[in-house]
């Protein structure tokens, strides 16, 4: 079982979550300006065929990021 909070890299396709906070301050700046704001709803839309990177739907568009980058985004899940 998962320990709360999840991070973004642990979502499965179709999971919807809310962004809580970030663990990497420098990485967070890039994510913030791309619209990944705490409180924003994200959906995991796609995982690349080799398992990495992933693509999320956020702020009205599709954003791709590597798993290592996604693991710095803490979330709480609202729907699987």
């Amino acid at each position: 079982m998962h320990q709360f909070p999840y991070n973004l890299s642990e979502l499965k396709i179709g999971d919807i979550a809310i962004i809580d906070s970030f663990t990497d301050p420098v990485m967070s700046l890039k994510l913030l300006e791309m619209g990944c704001i705490p409180g924003e709803r994200v959906e995991l839309v796609k995982v690349a065929p080799m398992g990495d990177p992933i693509a999320i739907h956020v702020a009205g568009y599709l954003l791709s990021l590597r798993k290592a980058e996604a693991s710095t985004v803490l979330i709480h899940q609202i729907r699987a």
Binding site: K30, M34, P53, A55, Y61, L62, L63, S64, L65, E69
Partner: peptide, 11 residues
């Protein structure tokens, strides 16, 4: 610079 892969998948 840091290698990012944080990018938009455009429509």
């Amino acid at each position: 610079e840091k290698s990012y892969f944080i990018m938009e998948l455009p429509v």
